[in-house]
Design a protein around this nucleic acid. Structure first.
Lengths: 163, 163
DNA sequence: TCAATATTGATGCATCTGCATTAAATGGGC
DNA sequence: GCCCATTTAATGCAGATGCATCAATATTGA
């Protein structure tokens, strides 16, 4: 069972891990310096703001964000604590609930997008031509799956879901 | 300050985040199921095993692994607790120390590599031709830097440093 | 209808992380 | 030599995460 992956595949793996970690760090750091909460909050707010009535079941959010259940639950706690979202009871399924974004939530999402998009441009956009970005997408997409493989929507018209 | 990054760049960013997170998760999970410790331990053991006398200053390790100082310190604690490494005093600089890998450490590193390499093959190698892996590397390398940009060695002869 | 199973969401607990601070040692300037 | 900034490593503490489990409701199927 030796020598399984080619050197090329291994090198790609290493790059994928290191580059992502660095770039993510840079963007997160920029965001933090600008006084904003973590990217995960942004993602959640974006998903909520896009949802039909600005509300989602935690389960849906969880799937969108590729987060474990308890993690979503706690993220919602924090959003609610900060007044960025509210929990609503779900009449059709009493186990569940809806999480609805508030005006403050929508506002924060928009404000964060300025800083966030600047980060993307600075750490990704400025280093890659559009053509290369497309190539990169294509290659990464091939690595898509393995567990519960959803294929999230391709374009991000106004804000990018990350992670 | 609107519309900064192109849609292409944004899409690439999203893919980079999502794909990495998924692939890493898969590999980590496989490793865990096989009864092994986290990837970070492997990385540390690999760096140590490659170092001249099987020993490194924590500071060096930290740079190799792109980890914060306190994180390295605690990782070393755990390795030492498990008998995979030992701390040695550093005669030439009494603040510092050397961390030396033990035989058990070397052995674990080798064992982990079987499982780890299988994971890389399964989740990366098998989905990409060597040519494409090279292209992917090239594109990712362009995103290289921003903070403290080191360029780690390209090939991984026997074991891959990750993250 | 009722029992067995599955889904939804929260939570206790141990561990891990990030941040700030500390302590010790070094090195440089004077 | 002496003071001060720097480097090296550890740690206390608050907050985050992973895991397992729980409680409540829904669904399935006999």
């Amino acid at each position: 069972m030796k020598r399984k992956p080619s050197t090329e595949a291994t090198a790609a793996w290493i790059r994928l891990m290191r580059v992502q970690s660095r770039v993510l760090n840079c963007v997160e750091q920029d965001l933090k310096k600008a006084g904003f909460p973590p990217l995960a909050w942004y993602d959640a707010l974006l998903e909520l703001s896009r949802a039909p009535a600005g509300e989602l079941r935690p389960v849906e959010l969880e799937k969108q964000m590729l987060l474990p259940q308890y993690s979503t639950s706690r993220l919602i706690d924090r959003l609610v604590d900060e007044g960025l979202a509210v929990r609503r009871e779900c009449k059709i399924d009493k186990r569940g609930q809806f999480v609805e974004i508030t005006d403050a939530g929508r506002e924060l999402q928009k404000k964060m997008w300025s800083a966030y998009s600047a980060g993307i441009e600075k750490h990704v956009g400025s280093k890659l031509s559009d053509a290369d970005a497309i190539k990169l997408c294509g290659l990464l997409d091939r690595l898509g799956c393995c567990a519960g493989g959803e294929t999230p929507s391709l374009a991000a018209k106004d804000g990018a879901p990350a992670r």
